[in-house]
Write a protein that binds this DNA or RNA. Structure first.
Lengths: 120, 120
DNA sequence: CATGACGGTATCCTTTTCGACACTATGTGC
DNA sequence: GCACATAGTGTCGAAAAGGATACCGTCATG
């Protein structure tokens, strides 16, 4: 069951900062959103893009993002199952935020050596 | 002892997004940074601005931010003790990120009713 | 008949996070 | 001589987050 976070933000001025953080916090949400800016993706397509995330975790993160109205989940009643994930307008509105995070990260986050290569 | 996070960011493309998140994630860090954009503050000045954060948590968050090179801690060898916290240039460079988070939050995060009033 | 792809669940367990609370040292004011 | 302010630290325990692993049904392929 996806946890319900951020019911309240009673942390004083500045709290909408924390509020936003709780939407995109959660180990894989940032990356999931990042990949969905690419366009609509199926479950296993996302999975392949984030190999270190377990299936259970990915499901959880997707469910939470969906509950927060950031992504849409479309099920095709087929066999084998087909489920597509895409950003909602609200999710897409996070793009400047994710971009700001990425810009700062690119300039300030040192990646593990083998990854820096892979990313290059 | 402040935990050491983000030793590795092996989460595939998009990971500098996660990387940045781990710097400002941690329940009170966003707010602390937000208040320090105001200027240098003493320990209890920060504390009063974030009443829901316990002393121990505030100390932890400040220590982690310091370990990450985002804030500077200046101790005056006086009695009673006086310690000032301020942003480092690296910390200040996070301003666009925090701003992006706040802009989105102001537009999209619904505050608890009594707080919306206080913020207005 | 067995295997694999698909999109998940269910269960268990460990790690991490966070809050409550008590305690510290020193100097000043009452 | 007692309380108060400052800036913390230590310990405890609950709760949440996250990882490992196994399992599900259906269809197509070999």
């Amino acid at each position: 069951m996806p946890r319900i976070r951020h019911e309240r933000f009673d942390c004083s001025p500045g709290c909408t900062v924390e509020g936003t953080l709780r939407y995109i916090d959660g180990k894989w949400k940032g990356v999931v959103l990042y990949h969905l800016f690419e366009g609509t993706l199926r479950f296993n397509e996302i999975r392949r893009r984030i190999p270190n995330c377990t299936q259970r975790m990915l499901t959880n993160q997707l469910r939470e993002l969906e509950a927060d109205g950031l992504i849409a989940r479309k099920i095709y009643p087929e066999v084998p199952p087909k489920v597509e994930y895409s950003l909602t307008p609200r999710g897409r509105s996070l793009e400047p935020v994710i971009t700001a995070l990425k810009v700062w990260g690119d300039a300030n986050v040192t990646l593990a050596p083998e990854i820096s290569q892979a990313a290059a």
